[in-house]
Structure formats: C-alpha cells, structure tokens
Amino acid sequence: MTTLLAYSHLFAGLGLGAFTEAGARVMRIGRYRSFAFAFLNIVITFGVVQGLLVGWVIGGRLSLVSIAPVLFMVGAVVGILVEGLNGYWWRAWSWSDKPLFGIERPIDKAAFIGVVWGFAPILTVMLARMAVVRGLEF
C-alpha cells in the first residue's frame, strides 16, 4: 500500500502538471524556450518535487485538513523559488504580454504563480488518495 501511494502521488503530480501546462498553453499565459523545459517542469517540479517529495513525504500519511497549511506553505515557497530561479537565471519560460488576472508586469506574474504553486501538493494529495483509497480520512 505504501509503495502504491508513493507512486500514486508521483503520477498525480505528473497528471496535474500536464493538465496545468496544457491549460497555460491554451490560455497563452507564457511560452517555453523549448519543449524540453516544459517536459522537465512537469516531471521534476510537478511530479518529483511537489507530488512525491512535498505531497507524499510531508503529507502522505497525515489527515489532509491538519497538514494542508504546511503543504501549501512548502509548495508556495518551492514555487516562488522556482519562479525566481527561472526569472533571474534559467529563462526557461517567459510571460506573454496578456494580463494575468489583471496582473501586467512579468515579475508580478511570476510572484503570483509562485504563490499559486502552493495548491499543487494539496491537489496532488487529494488526487492520489482518491485514486488509491477512497476511504482514507480527508
């Protein structure tokens, strides 16, 4: 069961990443320098970091209601770090000129999306538990 849950968190993270990146592409929020960066973002940031390490290792065995603030906290801190690394050094993706919920400056978009990353581990844990054991305490 433990191994199955760990895998389910990884795959839930990957699924969430693929869905989010596809949505961002449709909405033309930004653009990746190459497809490889989008793939790496889905696999490493969504799947391994937010899904497996944050979602499973920190929140996998605890009640979601009690651990949710910690999951959001860690997810958002990691998200802001990733957005900062990309904005200041990597340049793997860039923002389009289109306003994002009224936000116009690229630095503010990166900060906003960094905070939104906080939902990733929470959603991952929810999806993983729904996929494996419907009876687990939420």
Binding site: P69, V70, I80, G114
Partner: peptide
C-alpha cells in the same frame, strides 16, 4: 496546531520579499 496557517503567511510573504528584493 493553530500556528501553521498563520506561519503560512510569514513564509509566503518572506519568500516574496526575498524574490522582489533580488529583483
């Protein structure tokens, strides 16, 4: 147990402060 939600504000605001300060 009442602290994590409040500390979330601290951690996120501190991260954003560092993010904007570097920028």
């Amino acid at each position: 147990s009442a602290f994590p939600l409040a500390d979330l504000l601290v951690a996120v605001a501190a991260s954003l402060a560092a993010f904007y300060l570097i920028g």
